Simulated scan of single mutants.
Amino acid sequence: MDTRQFEYVLAIADERYVFKAADKLCISQPTLSQFLSRLENDLGVPLFHHSRNGFVPTPEGEIFIEGARRIMRIKGEILDKIAPFADRKKNRLIVGLTPGRSAALFSFVMPQFSSEAPEIEVQILEAPIQNIDELTRNGYLDLSLVIINKDDDQLVFEIFNEEEILFAVAGNHPLAPPSGNGTDGITAEIDVRIFAKEKFLMSKKGYRLRALVDSYLEKLELRPAVLMEATEIPLTCNMIRRGLGVGFIPAGFARAYHDLHVFSTSPKLTWDFGVAYRKGTRITPAMRRFIDLAKEYSRKDLASGGSS
């Protein structure tokens, strides 16, 4: 069931910019631009016009977009209805995570899950959060273990735990305690403004961590110089550990980087970690058991101060 042309147009309509839509779809910007040009030529009408606010649908584009949304809803309904009969749903569980979270979690979950449900093949997909969200919405992913976005009304969320966002510096930073790295214990709250003259390593704009951090810095009236914007948190951690800058990282990543020192912020920054699945999804006993094991690991890890 190839609905890519509808998915591509909807991505442009939702993101307003081709480069953002291409990033969301995991394709190149030229590929998406060429697709749109070919589609408009085939239809004989423009679907968008370019303005200062990005790509704005034309009247013809609005008609196409409305129809595309109906088609995608119907596709979702069809997939849901045939899911109980599909081999993929019977014998395979596809789970999505953002990079850096899978190794420890699955080393805990998989032995127990495999012993209880040996007939289920589990496939893991690591991708940026925007891609994980989209693949969960369109039904490709059965489950995704993600930071909860309560504004997404197409997904159902179950919260596992609240995770703190920490401020990280290299272990040899002048403000890092000489006794050792901060992953053995978080230093008491620190005023991030004392780092105002340093280079910050940030998540890419549009990502949840970046939105949370930008809001926090705005309240502090702090506008630091940004050395780099990363799409993956492990890259940010590696840059910080090498002394190339400072930045914010989730507590779940801290213990994997023993040469970092981390501080709590004031007020504390937190977000919710848990599981997501598309609305209307039939949760099989195997899916429920997988969710329960992931929740058990996440809460044990939080209690022990480990990495999720």
Rank of each mutant, 00 (worst) to 15 (best):
D151M: 08
L145A: 06
S144I: 08
P128T: 11
A127T: 00
K150F: 07
E121D: 14
L135W: 12
E134G: 03
R137Q: 04
A127D: 08
L125C: 10
Q123A: 05
E119C: 06
D142F: 01
N131M: 11
D152R: 13
A117L: 12
N149E: 14
P128Q: 09
I120L: 06
S144Q: 13
I124C: 01
I147N: 07
S114R: 12
Y140I: 08
L145P: 00
N138W: 13
P128H: 08
D151P: 00
N131R: 08
E121R: 09
D152V: 05
L143S: 02
N131D: 12
P118R: 06
S114G: 12
N149C: 05
L141P: 01
S144F: 08
A117Q: 12
V146A: 07
P128D: 14
I124F: 00
E119T: 05
T136C: 07
L143R: 03
E121C: 10
R137N: 02
S115Q: 15
E134Q: 14
S144W: 15
E121H: 10
L141F: 02
A117K: 09
Q130R: 14
A117S: 12
I132M: 09
N149Y: 10
D153N: 07
S144H: 09
D152H: 08
G139H: 08
L145D: 04
T136A: 09
L143Q: 02
L143W: 05
K150Q: 13
P128A: 11
E134C: 04
A117Y: 13
D142Y: 01
I147L: 09
A117F: 14
Y140C: 03
P118E: 06
A117H: 13
N149W: 10
L141G: 00
N138I: 12
Y140W: 04
E116G: 03
I129M: 15
Y140E: 10
D153K: 13
N131P: 00
N149H: 14
R137K: 08
N149I: 06
D133H: 14
Q123T: 06
T136D: 09
E121T: 11
L143N: 03
Y140T: 07
P128N: 10
D152F: 10
P118C: 04
L125I: 15
E126W: 00
S144Y: 13
T136M: 05
I147T: 08
E116Q: 13
E126I: 06
N131Y: 01
I129C: 08
I124T: 00
P128S: 13
V122P: 04
P128L: 07
E119W: 05
K150E: 13
S115H: 15
E121Q: 14
G139F: 05
